[in-house]
Lab assay of single mutants.
Amino acid sequence: DEVRLHVNGHTIEFRGIDEEIFKILEEAAKRGADEEELRRLAEKLLR
């Protein structure tokens, strides 16, 4: 299960996240989070 999030012209792939987590990451990206911040956030949410 892989999703792709487009951030500042880059595509970031995440594996094993559900739609709810994806929406949180998408919102963070809209607020200016970079790839590293998004990955840290995803790790926290998946715990």
Rank of each mutant, 00 (worst) to 15 (best):
D1F: 15
D1K: 12
D1A: 10
D1P: 08
D1V: 12
E2D: 08
E2Y: 13
V3Q: 15
V3W: 15
V3L: 15
R4N: 05
R4F: 10
R4W: 08
R4D: 02
L5K: 01
L5P: 02
L5H: 01
L5F: 03
H6Y: 04
H6C: 11
H6G: 03
V7W: 05
N8A: 05
N8Y: 01
N8P: 03
G9Q: 02
G9V: 02
G9A: 02
G9M: 03
G9T: 02
G9E: 03
H10V: 14
I12Y: 04
I12F: 03
I12Q: 01
I12S: 01
F14S: 01
F14Q: 01
F14L: 06
R15W: 14
R15K: 10
R15V: 14
G16P: 03
I17N: 03
I17E: 03
I17Y: 03
I17A: 04
I17K: 03
I17M: 06
I17T: 05
D18I: 04
E19L: 11
E19H: 13
E20G: 11
E20Q: 13
E20F: 14
I21Q: 15
I21Y: 04
I21V: 09
K23A: 08
K23Y: 09
I24V: 11
I24S: 05
L25T: 00
L25V: 04
L25F: 02
E26T: 11
E26K: 14
E26C: 10
E26N: 10
E26L: 14
E27A: 12
A28F: 14
A28P: 00
A29R: 03
A29T: 04
K30H: 09
K30S: 09
R31T: 10
R31W: 15
R31M: 12
R31V: 07
G32T: 02
G32D: 02
G32S: 02
G32E: 01
A33D: 05
A33V: 08
A33F: 12
A33K: 05
D34C: 05
D34L: 09
E35S: 06
E35F: 13
E36F: 15
E36C: 08
E36Q: 13
E37F: 14
E37G: 09
E37W: 12
L38Y: 01
L38G: 00
L38T: 00
R39Q: 05
R39T: 05
R40F: 12
R40H: 08
R40Q: 08
R40S: 12
R40M: 11
L41H: 01
L41D: 00
L41W: 06
L41M: 12
L41F: 06
A42C: 12
E43I: 15
E43A: 15
E43Q: 15
K44G: 06
L45H: 04
L45T: 02
L46A: 07
L46D: 02
L46R: 12
R47N: 10
R47F: 14
